[in-house]
Design a protein around this nucleic acid. Structure first.
Lengths: 131, 131
DNA sequence: CTTGACGTTCCTGTTACTGGAGGGTTTATC
DNA sequence: GATAAACCCTCCAGTAACAGGAACGTCAAG
């Protein structure tokens, strides 16, 4: 199948699929006319990549996951460790974002938000205790 | 003062301060020797930028906030709207991350994590219902 | 035989910096 | 007065993960 069909089946944009070939994640065959030709296995890999990316794995982590997926000798502990580490990273990010959100909400609440020019938000950002 | 001192006072790396000049966020004077010279006001702006960035505002949003900060005619509602919108964006991101985290935790829990090669994590990523 | 949908490559731009090369300046020390 | 350390400068390249667009080839339908 051509790249358009692979795109539909995997849910990945055509541009992204070409990019994944550029960085050697998925290696489709070529037809005589130069068109990329995707096998069912290629599409499986594209789906794998699409899902792993949605789970927050970086492209490089996806490369690793994919090689583990294709390595029948892998130990499942390796994959599990990667997943748990990712959970940790995500957790940290959530904590950071929550703190940012609380700070911003507090600032917004302290601002009357009308036509007058005095604005506690800006004042606090300029001199505030936001360290 | 020179850039090193401004860096200490603002907590921003020297490289970042130079970058902020490149993109015209802060415009220090120059001494005869070509060194950048920072006023107290410049340092105030650098601190403003540092804090606003930590609150999750993009550099372009910081540019806007800074111009609002310097505009004595601004209405506080404008700033408040920006802050609330940012809160919304952050909230959305938190929801997404939480969903990612839950999915990953579930996958990790289903994996025994020993030396055996069969790994539910990879199986689910490959064929799973992660849409 | 032409039109439109699809495919190709190549180049640029995005965000917000960071690292490094290759050089001048200043300050302190010997 | 020489030298070395600590500053400062500019410019160039690289990062992550694509997206947009130009300029062009190809294929199926009417």
């Amino acid at each position: 199948m051509n790249i358009g069909t692979a795109s539909e089946l995997s849910g990945l944009p055509v541009k992204t699929i070409r990019y994944y070939e550029d960085i050697k994640l998925v290696k489709p065959a070529r037809a005589q006319n130069g068109y990329r030709t995707y096998s069912d296995e290629d599409v499986l890999y594209l789906n794998f990549l699409s899902r792993a990316r949605k789970l927050g794995f970086s492209v490089d982590e996806c490369r690793l996951l994919l090689s583990l997926y294709n390595d029948s000798d892998r130990s499942s502990s390796e994959v599990k460790a990667l997943a748990l580490q990712k959970v940790d990273t995500i957790e940290t990010k959530i904590v950071e974002l929550t703190s940012m959100k609380n700070m911003l909400s507090k600032l917004a609440k302290s601002c009357h938000g009308d036509d007058r020019p005095d604005c506690p938000i800006l004042e606090e950002i300029a001199r505030g205790p936001l360290k």
